[in-house]
């Protein structure tokens, strides 16, 4: 089986701080994998290196068997990497539908088409509506992103990522700042994707992690200290000491 995502000895330092220390992570295709760790463990830096926003000091990143270490963010996206951000990144003045249509457009080759009205383009709008329906935003299509609730914006971000038809989804704290109801809804949406698309989930919400993950990796001080099944992670002494234990207090 080819790996969806593999990092080999990924290392990145900021001044004296080693944010990623020889991280070697393997995620199998169609696996739902969670990355957890205390604040400051280097999760965001690691995600940045996977998506291409941060270039590692050393180490490699492989995406579906291809070495993408030197690739730009857009190139990795078109290679099948869809993502959501820790802080929502949307085109706020665009409607929900237009945000998703923009992602659909990206999958249809270059966009140097200068005359036809894109807002009436069925080839964009029909698939975009389908994706919106999948994340439960079908009835919010014409609302500008800036007027959506926080939870809806997170759903819309997921829709933008899904619209690319990605083979792997990298979700950076999709439940951050959500109420219990919104979280439950997001978990439900992600459950539906589980097994269909490879998912790498960075999350603090342990209920979500244990509900969604096939395997869990634990990052502490830039180092991966464990990768295992949820039950084994729960029982892992080292993990408890470094992380879960502190949560329990």
């Amino acid at each position: 089986m080819t790996l969806a995502l593999e990092t080999i000895g990924l290392t990145k330092s900021f001044a004296a701080l080693r944010a990623s220390d020889a991280v070697s992570l393997q995620i199998e295709e169609r696996e739902s994998h969670a990355l957890i760790g205390p604040n400051g463990a280097g999760k965001t830096t690691l995600i940045g290196q996977l998506t291409g926003e941060i270039i590692p000091d050393s180490g490699r990143v492989h995406l579906f068997g291809t070495d993408v270490t030197q690739w730009s963010v857009p190139r990795r996206a078109l290679h099948g990497l869809g993502r959501s951000f820790q802080i929502t990144q949307l085109c706020m003045s665009f409607t929900a539908l237009d945000n998703v249509a923009l992602a659909i457009q990206a999958t249809q080759g270059h966009s140097f088409r200068f005359l036809a009205d894109a807002s009436k383009d069925k080839k964009l709008n029909d698939p975009a509506r389908d994706v919106l329906a999948r994340v439960g935003l079908a009835d919010r299509a014409t609302i500008e992103a800036q007027y959506l609730s926080h939870g809806e914006r997170r759903q819309l971000e997921l829709a933008c990522a899904l619209a690319l038809g990605p083979r792997i989804l990298v979700l950076d704290e999709p439940m951050a700042g959500m109420g219990p109801q919104e979280s439950a809804r997001m978990i439900e949406i992600l459950q539906a994707l589980r097994g269909e698309i490879t998912i790498l989930l960075v999350e603090h919400d342990m209920d979500a992690v244990f509900a969604l993950a096939d395997r869990i990796s634990v990052l502490v001080n830039g180092t991966l200290i464990a990768t295992d099944r949820p039950a084994a992670i729960r029982a892992n002494e080292q993990v408890r000491a470094a992380y879960l234990g502190t949560e329990a207090h």
Binding site: T51, E53, S72, V73, P74, R75, A77, L78, G82, R83, F85, Q89, L90, C91, M92, S93, F94, L102, A103, A106, T107, S111, C160, A161, A163, L164
Partner: peptide, 12 residues
Amino acid sequence: ANERRMAAMGYS
């Protein structure tokens, strides 16, 4: 509107 989002969607 959002350069980061555009890059993440594959636009150079």
